[in-house]
Simulated assay, not measured.
Amino acid sequence: MTQQLHLLTVATADLDAVRRLYSDALGWEPHTDVPGEIVFYQVAPGLLLGFFDGEKFDRDTGQAHGGVSGVTLAHNVASREDVAPLVAVMVSGGAVVVKPPRESEFGGIFHALVRDPNGVLWEIAHNPTWSIEPDGAVHL
């Protein structure tokens, strides 16, 4: 199998809450939006983040989803001063702060943790030892 990922899908109980956070508050443009079913956002070259209506997700997978657990999605910003404003924007769109902006106990990172309306945990971080190229390549 080629080492790549094209689609990350999250079951959601409320597609409107997804749109309020990701489209309205963050300004993300949907790649594809099927009302009452699923919305996809292009988050990187070759990678879509999809939010699928929970009941339809369960029918499609044949399993009951139990919420998102043990997973974080991360968004790195250019400076530590950029962390709090982005957290505030996410909160304005319906997210909840789990950990306010602060120094991490790991690796010299300044970060915050925010839970979206579906339970997805986002880390908003500035890591001075990382760099992200314009093409999305990450250098550790």
Rank of each mutant, 00 (worst) to 15 (best):
A78P: 09
P101Q: 02
F57T: 08
V97P: 01
E103K: 03
H31K: 13
E29I: 12
V43N: 13
G50P: 14
A112C: 03
V18D: 05
L7E: 15
T2D: 11
L49W: 14
G119W: 00
K56T: 11
V138D: 03
A17P: 05
F52Y: 15
L15P: 10
A137N: 10
A78M: 11
E133Q: 12
A11S: 10
E133T: 09
G50Q: 11
V77G: 07
L140N: 08
L113M: 01
P35R: 07
V91G: 05
Q63C: 13
N127A: 06
V120G: 00
N118M: 00
G46F: 10
L21E: 04
N127G: 05
G36I: 02
E105H: 07
V18N: 03
V71Y: 01
V77Y: 09
G62D: 14
K99Y: 07
G107K: 06
N118T: 00
V43C: 10
E133G: 05
T129I: 14
H126K: 01
S92G: 13
L73V: 07
S131I: 08
A125K: 06
G54N: 06
A44I: 13
A88T: 08
L140W: 14
G93R: 01
P100R: 06
V98W: 02
S79L: 13
G50L: 14
A125D: 00
L48G: 09
G50N: 10
Q63K: 15
E81C: 12
R19N: 09
A17D: 03
G36R: 04
T2F: 13
R115Q: 03
Q3H: 13
L26Q: 07
P134G: 03
G46N: 11
V91E: 11
H111F: 03
V39N: 03
A25L: 05
A13T: 02
D16Y: 03
L49F: 13
P101V: 02
A17H: 00
D53M: 03
D53C: 06
